[in-house]
Simulated scan of single mutants.
Amino acid sequence: MQPTSTQNLVLFGDNLDAVAGLPDASFTLVYLDPPFNTGRAQVRRAVTSTRTTTGGLRGFKGRTYERVRGDILSYDDAFEDYWSFLEPRLAEAWRLLADDGTLYLHLDYREAHYAKVLLDALFGRECFLNEIIWAYDYGAKSKNRWPTKHDTILVYVKDPAKYHFDSTAVDREPYMAPGLVTPEQAERGKLPTDVWWHTIVSPTGREKTGYPTQKPEGILRRIIQASSRPDDRVLDFFAGSGTTGAVAAALGRRFVLVDRSAEAIEVMRRRLPEDTVFETVAPAAGGVAAAGA
């Protein structure tokens, strides 16, 4: 199904199959929160990327990309399965981004450094915008190393000369040292930097849906405010509990969400606006466990 520009849509099925029918350059913002590569076995499809002068994946950087990819995959066999799963989805994300569009790839510390190098070669280093660190302080405390309390969000744009970014639309945050600024500045708050201090979803808070990988609305709100405008279209490949859609709708954006988890679909049915359309995509062979926001 091809959604209209005014339709909110949830697609139930494998995201590669689901997004294949969506038109090129139709989203201002694409967000991916894939399963983190924490040692779980991944079932993957065989996908190759080759240089071509007649169409193909236009964002790829030809031989440079293939060389970088080969170097990394030969260095870390464990990463190969994960990247072979993630790579075709990033290629589709590039296709679906409008010229003023932005990609947000949400990862943890195990994969972010590999993904950064490969995305530089895949999208073009000039298309790298930010590495956002989402820092939180919750959960177990390690006694034999510095406790790991952050995620990484890599931000790439389709065209560095055309992308949309509006920092003035983003909710401000308190100064960490309000005594060092004027009272007026302290009351207004400051624009966020690339380090975001934000708690996880509270186990007893109003946001809690019970979905295990749910992300806070505040994180998605900041992303959507900065990198899209009212009535723009937002796509989430791994929708999970539907946070991206819930925030997008509240901000006057339209969304397309994809997930292959029946549990996620049921959570989204309860959470998203009543006019949201739910469609089932023909099941694909293979795949991995759902993650998502």
Rank of each mutant, 00 (worst) to 15 (best):
T193Y: 06
D166M: 03
R221E: 12
R188M: 02
P192Y: 08
A169Q: 03
D171E: 15
D159E: 02
P192Q: 11
T209Q: 05
P216H: 09
R222K: 09
K158I: 03
T168A: 14
G189C: 10
I224R: 07
R229S: 11
E187K: 15
K158D: 00
D231S: 11
D194L: 00
R222W: 07
P192K: 11
S227L: 03
T152Q: 09
P178E: 04
P178N: 05
P160E: 06
R222E: 05
P230D: 03
I224Y: 12
E207W: 03
K162A: 14
A161I: 03
G218W: 09
L154D: 00
E217M: 05
R206E: 14
R172K: 15
T193N: 08
D171N: 14
Y175P: 03
D166A: 13
R222S: 05
V170N: 00
R221T: 09
W197S: 06
D159R: 01
E207T: 00
Y163H: 15
S228N: 08
V195I: 14
H198T: 10
G218D: 13
G218C: 11
V195C: 06
D151A: 06
G210N: 00
L191Q: 13
H198S: 13
A169W: 00
E184W: 04
E173I: 15
T168H: 14
G205F: 11
E187A: 13
V201T: 09
A169V: 05
D194R: 06
H198E: 13
W197P: 00
I223N: 02
P178F: 08
V157M: 01
L220C: 10
L180W: 12
D151W: 05
G218I: 13
V157L: 00
P216Y: 13
D171Y: 08
G179M: 11
G179Y: 03
D166P: 01
A177K: 14
D159H: 06
V195L: 13
M176L: 14
G179S: 12
R221L: 04
R188L: 11
M176I: 11
A161E: 13
G189F: 09
P230G: 01
T193G: 07
R221V: 03
T168M: 05
R172C: 10
A169Y: 04
T199W: 07
K162M: 15
T182C: 07
I153W: 08
I224K: 09
I219D: 04
A186L: 02
S227V: 01
I224E: 10
S227Q: 04
R229V: 02
W196V: 12
T168G: 09
T204H: 12
K162T: 11
Y211Q: 07
V181Y: 12
Q225C: 02
R188N: 07
T152I: 12
R229H: 10
W197D: 05
K215E: 08
D231T: 15
P230A: 06
V181F: 10
T182E: 07
S202Y: 04
Q225K: 02
K162N: 10
T209S: 11
F165E: 14
I224Q: 11
K158Q: 02
I153P: 07
G205H: 08
A177M: 12
Y211I: 06
Y175N: 11
H164N: 14
L180E: 15
Q225F: 01
Q185C: 04
T182G: 07
L180Q: 15
Y156E: 02
V181P: 06
E184R: 13
K190Q: 15
V181Q: 12
R172M: 09
I223W: 04
G205C: 08
S202T: 13
E184C: 07
D151Q: 12
